[in-house]
Amino acid sequence: MKHVNLRLPDDLHEQAKAAADADDRSLNSWLVSLVRRAVADDERPSAQGE
């Protein structure tokens, strides 16, 4: 497992922490889920060319 230092503005950190708490997750777990989703979305074929 890799460690990444992420610097967030104070207000964004507070909002992210609140969202993680509302989802009953740690901030780290919540952020990992968002990154996983973003990467999965990038791997989907785009419908723009249709």
Rank of each mutant, 00 (worst) to 15 (best):
P9R: 14
A16N: 04
N28F: 08
A38E: 07
A20I: 08
M1A: 07
H13F: 04
P9G: 04
V39Q: 04
P9Y: 06
V35I: 15
Q48L: 09
E50L: 07
K2S: 11
M1G: 12
H13P: 00
N28S: 14
L8W: 01
N5P: 03
L31M: 15
D21S: 15
L31R: 07
W30C: 03
D42H: 05
L34A: 11
A47Q: 05
L27E: 02
R44A: 07
E14I: 06
S29M: 02
Q15G: 04
D24I: 06
A40T: 11
A22D: 12
E14Q: 14
A47E: 13
E43F: 03
D42P: 05
A40F: 06
R7F: 03
G49V: 14
D11K: 07
E50Y: 02
L6I: 15
R25W: 04
M1W: 09
A38C: 15
V39C: 04
P9W: 01
R37N: 09
L8C: 11
D41V: 01
R36C: 06
A22T: 12
V4A: 04
S29P: 02
P45N: 08
V39D: 06
E43S: 08
R25F: 00
M1P: 15
D42F: 02
R44G: 02
L12Y: 01
R36Y: 02
D10N: 14
P45L: 07
K17Y: 01
D21K: 15
V4S: 07
P9Q: 11
R25P: 00
N28I: 05
H3I: 12
L6S: 03
S33M: 09
A20C: 13
S29F: 03
N28D: 09
A16K: 03
A18R: 13
A22G: 15
L27N: 00
W30R: 12
A16E: 13
E43H: 06
E14N: 05
E43W: 03
K2R: 15
H13T: 04
L8F: 10
A40W: 04
R37F: 12
R44V: 01
V4K: 11
L31S: 13
A38N: 13
V4D: 09
Q48N: 09
S33V: 10
Q15N: 08
V39L: 14
A16I: 04
P45F: 08
K17Q: 15
V35P: 05
R25Y: 02
M1C: 13
A22H: 09
V39H: 02
K2M: 15
L31W: 07
L8N: 08
A40K: 11
K17P: 00
W30P: 01
D11Q: 05
A16T: 10
R25I: 00
L27A: 01
A47D: 15
A18V: 09
D41K: 02
W30G: 03
D41A: 15
Q15S: 05
E50D: 09
A19I: 03
S46G: 07
M1Q: 06
A20W: 06
L31Q: 01
G49H: 07
R7S: 11
L8G: 10
D42S: 03
A19S: 12
E43V: 01
G49M: 06
R36T: 05
L27P: 00
R7D: 10
S26L: 06
V4I: 09
S46I: 04
H13E: 11
M1L: 10
R36M: 14
D10K: 08
Q48Y: 06
A20E: 06
A40C: 06
P45H: 09
L12S: 04
A16S: 14
